[in-house]
Amino acid sequence: MTPLLLLIFAFTLAIFLGVELISKVPSQLHTPLMSGSNAISGIAIVGALVALGDGESTLVRGIAFGALVFATINVVGGYLVTDRMLAMFQNKNKPKKGDH
């Protein structure tokens, strides 16, 4: 039972850490923060990979394959879209281009 308790221990600490990590976020970053952390929740990809074991039945592999595709969309799309958004914000922080 002890290793399981360690996992629950990690879970509890992570909750507190997550709550403490961000306190005051400028509203400019609300969308990127959301889409960036959403990309992290694509960590479900790990679960999908583990489920795609060699010896599993076709049904299991079929469902796990579906999970893998969705999780990969979440991860790849999430990180790229966040990066695109932040690049857009970053350009704004530099001196203005000669557009007028």
Binding site: A14, F16, V19
Partner: peptide
């Protein structure tokens, strides 16, 4: 890693 990462997102999402 699944537990920790998922939990971080869950908790920080609550802050937002």
């Amino acid at each position: 890693v699944l537990v920790v990462a998922g939990c971080l997102v869950g908790a920080s999402g609550l802050i937002l």
